[in-house]
Simulated assay, not measured.
Amino acid sequence: MSVFEKAKEAALFLKSRLPVDLQNPQAAVVCGSGLSGLANTVQAEPRAEFDYASIPHFPRPTVAGHAGKLVFGLLGQKIPAVFMVGRSHYYEGSSMDLITFPIRVFKLLEVDTVVLTNAAGGLNSSFKVGDIMMLNDHIFLAGLAGNHPLRGQNEEEFGVRFPPLSDAYDLILRRHVHHAWKEVLPPQSTRRLHEGVYAFVGGPTYETRAESRMLRMMGADVVGMSTVPEIVVARHCGLRVLAFSLVTNNAVLDPVPRGDEQELQEKAAGELNAMLEEGKAGHEEVLEAGRTAALDMEKLVTHVLVNVFG
């Protein structure tokens, strides 16, 4: 069975069980780590939820903070939307085809725009934990090396063999975001909105110091383990793309201390270990930063979609 046939089966399954008002969502929102609250922005009625396990061929996430359900509802009283609460990642053992499969289903549900969110490590020294970066470009080293979601026979029903990506990040949508940011952010907030470049890495390990420095020298502002394969497939399908990274930790770029440095010779083992652990990322840290920034992200995404489709 082709990817198109599988996606068609999944889309028909959903449409047959959705209220009429929700059968053709205009926007799809992918909720990243710690950002599942985005799905709570829809109206209470009409509303429908589907566990991924119930949907034919749909990938099932295994990572904490990724619930694994689709939530359909109305934004701003009249805009049908679908929220993907949790995603499957390449590092979980899934293929590129599988982790991007939901985007194909959204296309067949007649979605116009996909909004992707993620938690990412900050490489740019001007980015602070809790800041939001809107993607305007990306670096996809895995894809350049051939591990690409469009590798293999082209799915002609979705798009052309050689889709361009120089226009991947919709400029009109990004302009809407900058206008919305000024309206939704509380005056006392120190959170900042940036635009920049996202670097995709396979994971599940966080990056070494040398890898972080390399990515920063290449022009990346944040680094993470998702989103880019989905964006590639979304653009192959002709969907408009808007994407955000929540900066949940600052990557460590300083070179690792050398074992022969003179000033380290008299330090105790505990002090040496503390030096190495300074700035070390952890998944709980990612989830906590997501919780504290979730409300601003919810207001921003909702405001933009209501103004675009309202």
Results as ranks from 00 to 15, higher is better:
G219A: 00
P102G: 14
G65N: 05
S2V: 06
E195M: 08
D221G: 03
V129F: 01
G73R: 09
P102I: 13
V20S: 10
R161I: 10
L109Q: 12
S226E: 11
I103H: 13
L38W: 06
L14K: 13
H283W: 00
Y206F: 13
V160N: 12
P255F: 12
S126R: 08
R213P: 03
G238S: 10
A274L: 08
E271L: 05
G146C: 14
G93T: 04
G196R: 01
F50C: 08
T41W: 04
L150K: 09
E285R: 02
V256E: 09
P61R: 09
G202H: 02
L123T: 00
E110V: 10
R17A: 15
T62E: 09
G32D: 07
L135E: 10
F13P: 04
V241L: 13
N118H: 07
E207C: 00
D131E: 06
N250D: 00
V177R: 11
S2L: 05
E261A: 13
V301A: 07
A39M: 06
G121M: 01
H148Y: 10
A48H: 13
A11T: 09
M134E: 05
D296H: 12
A243V: 15
R216K: 08
M217D: 06
L300T: 07
S2P: 09
G146K: 15
G86V: 02
K267W: 12
L144F: 14
A281F: 02
E5A: 12
C31L: 00
L22V: 09
P80Q: 07
T248A: 05
G219M: 01
Y91S: 03
V241H: 15
E285F: 00
E263C: 12
E195I: 05
H194S: 04
G86H: 06
V71I: 04
A281T: 02
S189N: 03
L300Y: 03
V63L: 04
L300Q: 07
D21N: 02
A120Q: 02
V223P: 02
L22A: 08
V3K: 13
H66D: 04
V308I: 12
H176Y: 13
H283A: 01
E157C: 01
A39W: 07
F72M: 05
L18S: 12
P56Y: 04
P257F: 15
G152E: 14
V228G: 14
S226C: 13
K69T: 01
A120F: 03
D21H: 03
R174M: 14
A234R: 12
H236I: 11
V3A: 15
H303E: 08
R191C: 05
V304T: 05
E92H: 02
A281K: 00
Y198T: 01
A67Y: 08
N273G: 12
G37R: 08
M133I: 04
V228L: 14
T100N: 11
Q23G: 03
V301I: 14
P61K: 07
A27C: 15
L165P: 06
T208C: 04
N136L: 06
E156L: 11
A145P: 03
E92W: 02
